[in-house]
């Protein structure tokens, strides 16, 4: 059925456009156009910024949509920042950690009260922590990709999602994110562009956080380019 439908739909399209199949030369041209990944107009908001300003814009845009951000000076400070956030939010110190090797070397042992499980998200997980693939300054957007070490449901099932971002992962635009992705190789099954916690306006247009996904989205931003004393939690 589908094969016959396919041929008929393509034939109808060509009939409506009053032409036959495109010539081989034209098809080659279009293929080259696609492969060139030509950028359209890029807004100046983020593209015109240098490094530190780009990170500041990312943080400002993220906070605008109720993402919370804690800055630390070094990866070694991450477990403490996580523990402090959970305590401040009155959340249990149970954490499911993405089974990604990039999180292996953080000194979790220094915070023995954090109970940590590694793996994919399960129904009862309240808090997850994941790495990210990139962060987009333009709109304060996180870019997460699926993979063996980064199962997708970690980004959606738990009530609280904590994301580890390194300052050098912050790019200006979505297009910069696509370039990073292409440089890394094959397309993952899933790319999640996440901008703030889950929300809905479906009842009387009142924005409520935590519709189906996380109620809280928290970023721990590792910025080791900052001067000492500058890197306290915001």
């Amino acid at each position: 059925m589908s094969g016959e439908a396919r041929e008929e739909i393509l034939a109808r399209i060509r009939r409506s456009l009053t032409r036959g199949r495109l010539s081989a030369a034209r098809e080659t041209e279009l293929r080259e156009l696609v492969a060139a990944h030509r950028r359209n107009l890029i807004p100046a908001r983020a593209a015109a910024l240098d490094d530190p300003d780009r990170v500041s814009l990312f943080v400002a845009m993220a906070e605008e949509v109720q993402t919370t951000v804690a800055r630390v000076n070094s990866p070694a400070a991450v477990p403490e920042a996580v523990a402090r956030y959970l305590a401040a939010e009155n959340l249990p110190a149970n954490l499911v950690l993405a089974p990604d090797p990039s999180l292996d070397d953080l000194p979790w042992g220094a915070r023995p009260l954090l109970r940590i499980r590694r793996g994919r998200a399960e129904e009862r997980d309240a808090v997850s922590l994941t790495p990210c693939f990139g962060a987009i300054a333009e709109t304060g957007t996180l870019m997460l990709i699926s993979g063996a070490g980064t199962p997708t449901a970690l980004n959606f099932l738990p009530d609280t999602h904590i994301v580890l971002v390194y300052a050098d992962q912050v790019v200006a635009t979505y297009e910069d994110g696509w370039d990073r992705l292409r440089a890394a190789g094959a397309m993952p099954r899933t790319i999640n562009l996440i901008t703030g916690p889950s929300r809905t306006g479906d009842i009387e247009q009142r924005i409520e956080l935590g519709a189906h996904g996380p109620r809280r989205l928290h970023i721990v931003l590792v910025d080791d380019r900052q001067k000492a004393g500058d890197g306290e939690d915001k």
Binding site: V65, T139, G140, T141, N192, L193, I194, T195, G213
Partner: peptide, 8 residues
């Protein structure tokens, strides 16, 4: 500015 979730 952008929806919460854009997924590819």
């Amino acid at each position: 500015e952008f929806s919460s979730y854009t997924t590819v």
